[in-house]
Design a protein around this nucleic acid. Sequence first.
RNA 1: GUGAGCGUAGUUCAAUGGUUAGAGCACUGGAUUGUGGUUCCAGUUGUUGGGGGUUCGAGUCCCCUCGCUCACCCCA
Length: 422
Amino acid sequence: MSSSEKYRALKGMRDVLPPDIYLWQQVERTAAELFSSYGFNEIRTPIAEATNLFTRGIGEGTDIVEKEMYTFEDKGGRSISLRPEGTASVVRCYIENQLHTLPSPQKYYYAGPMFRYERPQSGRYRQFYQIGVEAFGSASPVLDAEVISMLCHFLARLGLTGLNVQINSIGCPTCRPGYIEILRGFLGDRQTDLCSDCRRRYLTNPLRILDCKVDGCAGVRQGAPHVVDHLCSDCSDHFNTLQLLLSHLEIPYTVNHEMVRGLDYYTRTAFEVTSANLGAQNAVAAGGRYDRLVKECGGPDVPAVGFAIGMERIIELMKQTCPAPVRAPALYIAVLGERALQRGLGIADTLRNRRIWVETGDYTASLKSQMRKADRLGAGFVFIIGDDELAAGALRWKLLSDGSEGTTPFSAVTSFFESRLR
RNA sequence: GUGAGCGUAGUUCAAUGGUUAGAGCACUGGAUUGUGGUUCCAGUUGUUGGGGGUUCGAGUCCCCUCGCUCACCCCA
């Protein structure tokens, strides 16, 4: 709104406040509980890394490293970047800590902010949060299925419905080059009808033409050969077994032949969960297999699968079905005078030790204003303590929902309150 | 990086180019002593995002700028 002097959060970055914060906590708690039942352990890596970890890991030609990274020099002249995604950091962590020496597969999850310098829009922020999962050390499609299944259960446990799971296989270094040539052959004489980006992609990364959203390109690629029909036998077996497992697990999915992931490191399985209830940025979670990345980053030849969940997008969907819960104190202690305040503070302490949310009033304010404040906070009970109550050794209580009132001795406060709580 | 829409009180919104820019909600206090919600009364809040221009006169028209929103691109 007004005034250039006021500080505001940077473009594309925002505060998370109550009541939304309780949804965030719920999502994080659910992830921690569910993922650990699948044997995934949390890890925390720094939010900044050497820039070349990302350029090498994510791929020189990707938009993310080409134009979206927050990159700066530290005081020692080193090029540092804020992480634009989580996988590269986790891979670095896996290699640096020699986690391959532990029994395979090693399974980890992380949660935290990522940074990309993009133009913000609905569901897209410059600082955004992901919960990600990475499993190292098994090339088996069983692990792909486990990870996809875990993701679906996670989303279901949060009460999200109407989501769409799409999978595809984009092959491996053995079969992908062959497919790319076949694709180029198909597109060959129709190149001129492609958009300018796709004409460039024809040379650099023809796979990306498959998921270009420009109308003309969709027409040009109609009838294009599917990757899945040109996989080597290993990749083909892998993909078929994955589908079989997903069916056994009763996970509804569709094969999307046009889905290729944007990051260079993916091999074989690629998958994505989308929602029709978001804006243009409709991916809720996405991931895939990256069997060559660990080696490419200087580690042992270890295959891996993972995915990342877009926190803000999950939260948005949750808010559409049920609003964020409003929290309110169970008890407000209205106090009249300093002696009453002292008594009230003691009671508050006792009950707080029993995990009860208690607020105390301002003894210089009128009872009316304290009552009003209790009501505004949505407190369940009010305790009233004044000279009369101190003399009688019993406080007045009032249940705000129906206005009922009574007295109870100070000595019986704990048991009174706990029995009335449920 | 490209395009479009929108910027008026804490908030939601009014105000044919024409007095001192208003209203609801919210907030604070009060309606006989120590009782919330509903009601009534009173009070507080603005560089109309900022800068320039047109005009006798600009919240209103024009230009620039900043911000927000949405979309493209790309992605979670």
